[in-house]
Amino acid sequence: MREITFSQATLEAMEEEMLKDDTIFVMGEDLARQGGIFGQFKGLSDKFPGRILDTPISETFIVGGGVGAALAGARPVVDMHFADFIGVCMDEIYNQMAKVRYMFGGQAKVPLVLRAPDGMVVGGAAQHSQCNEAWFMHIPGIKVVAPSDAYKAKMVLKAAIESDDPVIFFEHKVLYPATFEVPEKEDEKPYVLGTADIVKEGTDVTIVSYSVGLKTARAAADMLEKEGISAEVIDLVTISPWDKETILNSVKKTHRFVVCHEAVKQGGVGAEIAATVAEEAIDYLDAPTLRFGAPFCPIPFSSAFDQIVRVQPDDMVAKIKEMF
């Protein structure tokens, strides 16, 4: 094993893929000169001159141009700067990127990766802190991923770049500088988009999460363990299309279902999964499902609000214990 940051992991993925295929290029705001606002593209421009483009502040061009480049035969990776800016180019995502393959009867393929740094950072406030992955779960034709650690970041990003479908890669801002143990390169295994990962086996309750939420879920699971409750923790990894089979099988085994994410609870990814569990496995449930997410308010600025808008492992444990 070796230790790298989440950010380094994404850089390794980019570099390895870009070495293999000259038609991969990257465009977005402040990538070449700055190395990305979070440093996640640092040094890439020196290694691949002319293949990392600093664009105008033109999100519709960044994404729409990426789609056009993909249609022409290239494999673009485009960056949103902050996931919060994604609404500026929503049409390019949901009417162009997601639909061209289908509406043209399979003539098109869109091998494009849209990298979207998301999530709460202290003081980020309402327009620089959002987790908006649920919007894209509602749109057929795109794949949505949100890795939770460095190894997954690397392998998922590589799979996204190699995919002939458009992939939105949500990368949590808090994860970038975090260090994780990853396998040596020769031990790495390709990731298959659409597969969840059981990160901790358990028998009494299934807890599903992804991205930074997984840390919360694991913390809750560790606390539950001390109370004699064995939680199975599943990293969703791919939010759409999601791995229904792995989750339903787990629920059928544990008979209790919990989902947590940093995003707003209402209409969130957890709502879809919980609804599916209710549809397809309700007879297996020994307790009502539990969902944890942010309250239904924009992310406030002051640190006074930090605890209230974030899912807390303590709260999860207290409510999960009531399931028994």
Partner: peptide, 25 residues
């Protein structure tokens, strides 16, 4: 590369295709 049901949907696609053809393909 397609008719487009969204008025003004083609500008960026054509420009991106031009970028790819010129610089990378």
């Amino acid at each position: 590369l397609g008719a487009n049901g969204i008025v003004g949907g083609g500008f960026n696609l054509a420009t991106g295709a031009a970028l790819a053809n010129k610089e990378y393909l």
